[in-house]
Amino acid sequence: MPELVLPTTRLHAAFLDCRDDWGPGLHEDGFGLDTDDDVDSPEGFAAWVHQRVRLTHPAGRPCPPERHGSPRWIVEDGRVLGGIALRHYFDDDIGHIGYGIRPSARRRGLAGWALGEMLGEARAALGLNRVLIPCLADNVASARTIERNGGALEGIRDTEHGPVRRYWITLDR
């Protein structure tokens, strides 16, 4: 049974295995990787994880509000299968939620399950009425996942990464 867990150094090898399943590039939505992040070395990975968790739990620590978020890894039997992140701020370009499932774990309903969990958190913890979730226009699987979770297509917008579908999900109270 999969679970959503906070980023942890305990899963370094499993994270790298997940990343390698995608191949080169920074396209693992839900992990928040930047081009200058060192996730290969144990020290760099520990710093990256600490930064993700610190930004997730700002209580008692200074943290700029524009970086608050709730990143989670989708883990099953010690394997990292993907990631999902709920942003605690609104960004019209990237939306409230981003997610990605490693290629070898797709077509199992993991994205839909994880998205449903994060929608509950957006409603309960953040009090949001609705969330914006974009996906690349040619990503039919992601579009269907969002639609199955109540996504209503606002439209398609051209971005620097290509055309993006923009979905709004209204959260029930």
Rank of each mutant, 00 (worst) to 15 (best):
L86H: 06
F90A: 06
R130L: 15
P42E: 05
G82Q: 06
E66T: 11
L136D: 10
E147M: 15
H50C: 13
D20S: 10
L6W: 15
D91V: 05
S41Y: 14
N149K: 08
I156L: 04
G83E: 00
E160I: 09
L153G: 09
V140R: 15
R52D: 07
E154F: 10
P65M: 00
G162I: 03
T145M: 00
D40K: 14
G162Y: 04
G155Q: 06
P65L: 03
N139M: 00
G100Y: 02
R166W: 14
E66V: 10
L119Q: 05
N149R: 13
V5H: 05
V39N: 01
L110E: 02
G23I: 00
L81S: 06
A124Q: 12
P24M: 02
Y99L: 07
P71L: 01
G60Q: 04
I84M: 10
D36C: 05
G109E: 08
E76K: 07
L16S: 05
P62Y: 13
E76Y: 05
L81W: 04
A124H: 15
L11S: 07
H27N: 15
F31Y: 12
T159D: 01
D17T: 10
G155H: 02
T56C: 14
A122P: 05
P7E: 11
A85L: 12
A122D: 03
D34G: 10
H27D: 04
C18K: 07
P103T: 07
L132F: 05
H161C: 12
G82A: 10
R108V: 12
T56W: 13
Y99G: 03
D93T: 11
T9N: 13
T56Y: 06
D138F: 09
R54I: 04
L132A: 02
E3K: 07
L81Y: 04
L128K: 15
C63P: 02
L126P: 03
A152L: 12
V140I: 15
I169C: 12
D138A: 11
H50Q: 08
D138S: 11
I84W: 14
A47G: 10
A124G: 09
L26P: 00
P2T: 11
P64R: 09
A152M: 14
T9C: 13
R19N: 08
D38W: 09
G98M: 01
L126F: 05
A13Y: 09
L81M: 15
R166I: 14
E160H: 13
G60T: 02
L4W: 03
I94R: 11
W113N: 00
D91K: 07
N149D: 09
W73P: 02
L115Y: 03
A111C: 11
N139F: 01
D77T: 04
H68K: 13
V131F: 03
R87E: 13
D93L: 13
I101M: 01
G162D: 08
R144K: 11
E43R: 10
L11V: 12
L171E: 03
R108N: 10
G60A: 01
V53L: 06
I84V: 14
G98P: 05
E66Y: 11
P24T: 04
R54T: 13
A47D: 09
P7D: 07
E3Y: 01
A105N: 01
C135E: 02
L6A: 14
V5D: 04
